[in-house]
Amino acid sequence: MGGGAAQARTGERSGPRRKEEIFAASLELLAGQGYDAFTIEGVALRSGVNKTTIYRWWPSKSELLRDALLHSGTLAFDLPDTGSLTGDLTELAVGVEGLLGEPEARAVVEAALVGAVRHPAMRELVTQFLEDRLGRHQPLFTRAVERGELPADLDPALLVDAVAGALWIRLLVRRRPVPDGFAAQLVALLADGIAAARER
């Protein structure tokens, strides 16, 4: 009985660690091989976790990739809280820039976007990822509304899309480096628009 309890506790402790290993292997395969060639068998081989265990947790590759995109630390960064909307948006831009500056994260983002163009299932995963990130950023905008910096009826997605989109286009499409002061300049332009919206 004692041995069984110890084994159960070990399983509980190893579960999150094993899942992170599976997530890491999943994103590495997505980045290296694309959505078409992505298989749970490949993830099992790369992660060293038995494929029956992976199938028990995720019955399909779409479900596995969804959780890998949402919960892996590869695509995560801290939510800023500088005390001002312009400060938070600037830090958000710096965070996106830093994320896309990491070769591993950049490769995952590129593979996901390419897959989204070709496959409805991958497109849905990217949509879920973006909605999840918008939800995680919501406290930033709630605080800004409470401070009177942002109109309550302004859609936060407009600001997130403007910040992230500018960096994605520059780094992933135009393949140009981000100059010093880019984030501050971008947010200054957005701040002018926000000020105009408050005066409506």
Rank of each mutant, 00 (worst) to 15 (best):
K61T: 07
L190E: 06
L45K: 06
L140M: 14
H119G: 00
T90S: 01
K61P: 02
G48V: 05
E131A: 15
A116I: 10
E21G: 15
D180A: 14
A166F: 03
A68K: 04
R123Y: 00
L79T: 13
V145K: 03
V178R: 04
R136V: 13
A105G: 09
E41C: 04
A24I: 01
L89T: 04
L113G: 04
E12N: 07
R17G: 06
V117T: 14
R56C: 00
R170S: 00
V43D: 03
V187E: 04
V187F: 09
R147W: 01
R46M: 08
L29R: 04
L172N: 12
E41Q: 12
R46V: 08
Q128T: 10
I22G: 05
V178C: 10
L100E: 09
A184E: 11
A5W: 06
E28C: 08
E97I: 14
G32R: 07
W57V: 04
T74N: 07
P16F: 10
G3A: 14
I169V: 10
G48T: 07
R200V: 07
L140A: 05
R106M: 12
S60G: 12
A184L: 07
A8K: 14
I169E: 15
V96C: 07
P139A: 13
A183K: 03
G115E: 02
K51D: 13
T86W: 01
G4T: 03
Q138W: 10
A191T: 09
L150W: 00
V187T: 07
D88S: 00
L140P: 01
T127W: 14
E131K: 10
F23R: 12
G165I: 08
S47V: 04
V145G: 00
I194M: 00
R200G: 08
A112R: 01
T74M: 14
